[in-house]
Simulated assay, not measured.
Amino acid sequence: MNPRRLTVNCSMLFTDLPLLRRPQAARDASFNAVEFWWPFDDAVPADREVDEFVTAIDDAGVRLTHLNLAAGDLAAGERGLLSHPQRAREFVDSIDVAVGIGDRLRTVGFNALYGNRVSGLDIAEQDSLAVDNLAIAARAAATIGAQILLEPLSAIPDYPLRLADDALAVADAVRREHRIDNVALLADLYHLSTNGDDLDHVLSHHTGRIGHVQIADAPGRGEPGTGTMDFARYLGALDEAGYQGWISLEYRPALPDPFSWIAEFADGAH
């Protein structure tokens, strides 16, 4: 694992600080890259909010590698808007905002959470809407050389993407129906492991379709070493398979130094 390819998820780490101070905290911890979930209350924030967010990252001297598109109220259990007929407009509206930020901060991937199943709504209707909206997002991301990412999630019963193959099937549908090929898998090893996916198979057979990797240990979603996952094997498998993308630290810190584990993989450097 090359420590220069680590990016810190500032929506899960440094949460004792206000959001706009977290990029500097990441830099002070010797990281050069960060990522965020959607950092605004609204799908279309005021220009001032966008400028403040960009300035905080610029001033810290870090790169914004990845950004979630608007995904609704995560605290209330929402996990994306793009497949929800009454909410999808918010998702589409957030695309231009996100791509504009990404263009300024060299962002390479935008995570588009799929959205929970809506009770009483035809599943095929939701899936068709999702594919169309992903195509809109992918075309916009392509203008700055970025990807749209699809992430399987755990612990949300109504969220339909559980395994890597679920996300890849949606990416296949976007390619088939819209001839767009910059929709990739976000392989969050914690979620995939929790859902019972075969990580060895995913990492060895789908490397070319993985656009981004996020890590946290299971159980508990803490730092590597706080659970039972074999990160030496998984990170080694990614390197061996030729994965050259970023690896995100997206965990809930449980140790006094949430980055001490990195020394085991990178001779103490981070």
Rank of each mutant, 00 (worst) to 15 (best):
residue 118 V to Q: 14
residue 176 R to E: 14
residue 57 I to Y: 02
residue 37 W to C: 11
residue 225 G to N: 02
residue 219 P to F: 01
residue 254 A to M: 15
residue 203 L to S: 05
residue 86 Q to V: 08
residue 193 S to G: 09
residue 108 V to Y: 01
residue 18 P to A: 07
residue 145 G to T: 11
residue 131 V to F: 03
residue 123 I to G: 01
residue 227 G to I: 05
residue 27 R to H: 14
residue 117 R to A: 14
residue 96 D to P: 04
residue 24 Q to C: 01
residue 11 S to V: 03
residue 73 D to P: 00
residue 46 A to Y: 04
residue 123 I to S: 11
residue 235 L to C: 11
residue 217 D to T: 08
residue 137 A to R: 09
residue 77 G to A: 11
residue 113 L to N: 11
residue 44 V to I: 11
residue 156 I to Q: 13
residue 201 H to F: 06
residue 199 L to H: 12
residue 154 S to G: 03
residue 198 D to C: 03
residue 161 L to I: 08
residue 213 V to W: 02
residue 263 A to I: 04
residue 99 V to L: 10
residue 9 N to S: 04
residue 76 A to T: 04
residue 245 G to I: 01
residue 184 A to C: 13
residue 178 H to G: 09
residue 114 Y to D: 01
residue 1 M to V: 05
residue 253 P to T: 10
residue 194 T to G: 02
residue 5 R to S: 11
residue 58 D to M: 04
residue 139 R to K: 12
residue 105 L to N: 12
residue 85 P to R: 08
residue 52 E to I: 00
residue 4 R to E: 14
residue 235 L to Q: 06
residue 252 R to A: 10
residue 156 I to A: 12
residue 47 D to A: 15
residue 81 L to T: 09
residue 70 A to M: 12
residue 105 L to S: 12
residue 37 W to D: 07
residue 163 L to P: 00
residue 94 S to N: 12
residue 260 S to H: 15
residue 102 G to W: 00
residue 121 L to F: 01
residue 144 I to C: 05
residue 42 D to R: 15
residue 65 T to E: 15
residue 109 G to P: 11
residue 216 A to I: 05
residue 82 L to Q: 04
residue 220 G to V: 13
residue 124 A to F: 08
residue 158 D to T: 13
residue 217 D to N: 09
residue 11 S to F: 04
residue 110 F to Y: 10
residue 118 V to D: 05
residue 157 P to L: 03
residue 31 F to H: 10
residue 265 F to Y: 15
residue 196 G to W: 00
residue 247 I to E: 08
residue 169 A to V: 00
residue 180 I to K: 01
residue 54 V to D: 04
residue 230 D to I: 03
residue 226 T to N: 08
residue 238 L to I: 04
residue 139 R to N: 07
residue 233 R to C: 08
residue 260 S to Q: 13
residue 10 C to S: 11
residue 167 A to I: 00
residue 107 T to P: 07
residue 154 S to A: 15
residue 61 G to S: 13
residue 76 A to Q: 09
residue 203 L to A: 03
residue 26 A to R: 07
residue 98 A to N: 06
residue 104 R to K: 14
residue 227 G to V: 02
residue 250 E to G: 04
residue 236 G to A: 09
residue 67 L to S: 13
residue 28 D to Y: 03
residue 206 H to P: 04
residue 193 S to L: 00
residue 78 E to K: 04
residue 127 D to S: 08
residue 11 S to R: 10
residue 232 A to Q: 07
residue 199 L to P: 08
residue 223 E to A: 05
residue 105 L to D: 08
residue 157 P to C: 07
residue 251 Y to W: 00
residue 219 P to K: 02
residue 157 P to M: 02
residue 204 S to A: 14
residue 178 H to L: 01
residue 68 N to W: 07
residue 213 V to I: 14
residue 27 R to P: 06
residue 75 A to Q: 13
residue 135 A to W: 11
residue 96 D to Y: 07
residue 73 D to Q: 10
residue 70 A to F: 15
